[in-house]
């Protein structure tokens, strides 16, 4: 594990140094990434021009959801986002060149094109989180204070696991990248909103199949001190770390199964 992190850092650093040779381009790309990320916030702002509450949630509360969705998503995206290119590498045969190197292809995939531009997603999330925390009407108990970093870490792990699982899916369906983005980008988008605005069956899927409800929705109900509109037991609010751990194990298994399949069926 430590070795993997070391290699990851070295590779990411080499890519960054290469990108830094074109500073103007790098800054420009970072800024445009910020702009792209802010589009979702613009939508939320426009919605609250017309109403004080969306399904009972105030603008600040939705901002809190937006930030606690975006920060974990951005962190996972920084570390693992390029894993979604797997299908392309299988198609072009470049995965083979990764397999003849003594480092996990997942690390090679994830560090590819690593540049500070990836921070462009995190930046707005952090700023909005600070604003939302400052403005939110929360009774700050020690439990709620601890919950904030805990939900950010769990959320990061959940999204990270989803990046890996959706990449592994592309071992089976090589042209499936678009479909997998409905899980990753779709997941990032829907967790920005109070989950009970989505249809009941939809939410059930999102709670139990793709555990997106544990990224920020369940912990947020605890922080914001709200009853669960779907009546899940209170324990669910504290389940995020456990869910994240289980999902990470599943992701590791899925990746291994995918790689084994690739190496035993060829392509």
């Amino acid at each position: 594990m430590a070795e993997a992190l070391r290699v990851y850092a070295l590779l990411a650093w080499t890519w960054t140094r290469a990108a830094a040779q074109y500073p103007v381009s790098m800054i420009m790309l970072t800024l445009t990434t910020v702009a792209l990320t802010l589009l979702d916030l613009a939508a939320i702002a426009l919605i609250f021009v017309h109403t004080d509450r969306l399904a009972g949630f105030s603008g600040t509360e939705v901002m809190f959801l937006y930030a606690t969705s975006l920060v974990p998503f951005a962190m996972a995206d920084i570390v693992l986002g390029t894993a979604e290119r797997l299908g392309q590498h299988v198609r072009e045969g470049s995965l083979d060149t990764m397999l003849v190197r003594p480092v996990s292809p997942l690390i090679q995939l994830a560090t590819e094109d690593f540049t500070p531009r990836r921070l462009g997603k995190l930046l707005p999330g952090v700023v909005v989180l600070a604003v939302a925390l400052e403005r939110a009407d929360v009774d700050w108990t020690p439990g709620r204070i601890v919950m904030i970093p805990l939900m950010l870490v769990s959320g990061t792990l959940i999204f990270g696991a989803l990046w890996v699982i959706t990449a592994a899916f592309q071992f089976v369906v090589v042209d499936g990248r678009e479909a997998t983005s409905s899980v990753t980008y779709g997941g990032a988008f829907l967790t920005q909103y109070p989950m009970h605005i989505f249809g009941r069956d939809f939410v059930r899927t999102l709670t139990f199949v793709l555990p997106l409800a544990f990224v920020n929705w369940q912990p947020a109900l605890y922080v914001l001190d709200r009853p669960d509109p779907h009546g899940l037991p209170a324990a669910a609010r504290f389940a995020s770390p456990a869910v994240a751990a289980v999902l990470c194990v599943l992701a590791a298994l899925a990746w291994r199964a995918g790689l084994r399949r690739y190496r035993s069926t060829g392509n």
Binding site: I47, H50, T51, R53, L54, A55, V173, D175, G176, R177, E178, A179, T180, S181, S182, G186, F189, L190, Y193, I197, F198, G199, F202
Partner: peptide, 25 residues
């Protein structure tokens, strides 16, 4: 097919968000 899946999923997500907005207004 994979693009249709994603377009449809986002269609659902955006529809639910707009339903919530139109319920308020």
């Amino acid at each position: 097919a994979s693009a249709v899946v994603t377009n449809t999923v986002f269609g659902f997500l955006r529809a639910y968000i707009l339903i919530a907005l139109w319920q308020a207004r």
